[in-house]
């Protein structure tokens, strides 16, 4: 398992590229999340071997995580869709702030200075948006499962 966000982002990019390259090998009968998680797991293990000092050295924990992902792959896939709908309903200023947050090379401190807001205020706003989106996605998942 990777706890460093930068590493996660690197790995995610690699997983994405690999999934794109191997999409032809994907069997549409299989669960897409499980398939990409398999790719991701291999990437994590590979990364683990290359940079062991930066990763959590717990095979047991990694295994438990894989089990959770496998057991809830359908939910996680639906969460992706639920999030898309929640994002569509997100207010424009909040969406822009998220864009800043996830833009490459953007330093929030600098953004705070440029927009005249305090860094603390930006962090608070981001926290509020994340919680709202996560709860929105959770509610939608619950609603879908009740149908």
């Amino acid at each position: 398992m990777v706890f460093n966000i930068a590493d996660v982002e690197d790995l995610l990019q690699e997983v994405g590229v690999t999934a794109w390259e191997k999409y032809d090998e994907y069997d549409s009968e299989r669960d897409f999340v499980s398939w990409t998680c398999g790719i991701a797991r291999n990437k994590v293990l590979s990364f683990n071997r290359l940079a062991s000092h930066r990763l959590v050295q717990s095979a047991e924990l990694l295994e438990r995580m894989e089990q959770e992902v496998g057991a809830n792959s359908r939910t996680l896939e639906r969460q992706h869709e639920a999030l898309r709908e929640c994002l569509a309903r997100l207010k424009e200023p909040d969406r822009r702030l998220l864009q800043i947050r996830y833009s490459e090379g953007v330093i929030l401190k600098q953004v705070a200075a440029e927009t005249g807001q305090s860094l603390q205020a930006l962090y608070k706003s981001l926290q509020r948006i994340h919680i709202r989106l996560f709860e929105c996605a959770t509610r939608r998942l619950a609603a879908w499962e009740e149908r």
Binding site: V8, E9, L12, G16, V69, L76, Q79, H80, L83, R84, L87, R95, L98, Q99, R101, Y102, S103, H130, L133, F134, A137
Partner: peptide, 11 residues
């Protein structure tokens, strides 16, 4: 997954 998905969609 939520955070990864969010980053994916926003990016």
């Amino acid at each position: 997954f939520f955070e990864t998905s969010l980053q994916w969609q926003i990016s």
